[in-house]
């Protein structure tokens, strides 16, 4: 992993998109984590005298239909939206990697697992999440699980493909010939060499999950409105979008920026970890 220990400045010069995306993401995470320091306002404080006010010095992003401060809600909302992104990326990547490894190594399991993955993939991911949410209650945990399930097959296929080709790689055959066991081969030789595309896809999953969460909120199958997320803040404002566009515009803007930042990190990592970018020379 010599590439990882490159000096930060060099990464920033060679992959400006990666650096910019990471900086934006870090800023958003910091704002969400330190929300009470950023704004003293309680995001749940209802002020019926201040309903749906346009941005002003008191409320820089304006207020929502219940007179709650939008800036505070968006800052706090980042906690949930970003956590869902990270949680889905982690769950789907770990589950997909395990499934892909098993399928790549066990013939019998391969047939069964990959048919299941094909089945899951045949349902468009947003619809799958919608269907799963329709069957369950709208809790945060259920939203995470529903979005994760549709993300698993992509990782599983990727890992299975890498396992199948790396198993035949000459250096792996050399290790097999040395009498090294399967477990050690998987964890020391195959996974580290398959890691780059898995990491890149995990970032894309993270971006996709934040988007899916917002879509679920938008059609009324998302996280409960008691805890603000960028998705449900926007969903609450959507009936008034023609007259009070700011209630939709600000959370949508922040969400877009966050997704863009994650995608930029993903693209940057992809370019940086690309084995064709001259490992041999």
């Amino acid at each position: 992993m010599a590439a990882i220990t490159l000096p930060m400045r060099r990464i920033a010069r060679r992959h400006p998109g990666l650096a910019l995306g990471a900086a934006i993401l870090a800023a958003l995470c910091l704002l969400a984590l330190c929300a009470p320091l950023v704004t003293p306002v309680d995001p749940g404080f209802v002020d019926m005298s201040q309903r749906a006010k346009a941005p002003s010095w008191d409320h820089i992003f304006g207020t929502d239909m219940l007179g709650r401060d939008l800036f505070a809600r968006i800052i706090y909302g980042g906690r949930l939206s970003l956590s869902i992104g990270v949680a889905v990326a982690l769950i789907a990547t770990v589950a997909g990697t395990v499934i892909g490894l098993v399928a790549g190594y066990v013939r019998l399991a391969d047939a069964i697992l990959m048919r299941i993955m094909d089945g899951v993939m045949s349902i468009p991911s947003v619809l799958l999440a919608v269907a799963l949410m329709a069957l369950s209650t709208g809790s945060i945990g259920n939203v995470i699980v529903a979005i994760s399930i549709s993300g698993i097959p992509r990782i599983a296929r990727l890992v299975r493909g890498s396992v199948l080709s790396l198993r035949e790689a000459v250096f792996v055959e050399a290790v097999i010939g040395g009498g090294v066991g399967t477990g050690r081969i998987i964890f020391r030789h195959i996974l580290p060499n398959a890691a780059a595309p898995i990491i890149v896809n995990a970032t894309y999953l993270c971006a996709g999950a934040m988007l899916s969460e917002a879509v679920l909120c938008f059609i009324g199958a998302g996280t409960p409105p008691t805890v603000p997320s960028w998705g449900n803040i926007m969903a609450e404002g959507r009936t008034l979008w023609m007259v009070k566009p700011h209630i939709v515009a600000f959370p949508a803007l922040i969400l877009s920026i966050a997704i863009l930042a994650v995608n930029m990190v993903g693209d940057g990592l992809r370019d940086m970890l690309d084995p064709r970018a001259g490992r041999r020379n």
Partner: peptide, 11 residues
Amino acid sequence: FQDPYASLNPR
């Protein structure tokens, strides 16, 4: 093996 570039784990 034949290919000296492929026969050692690069990592």
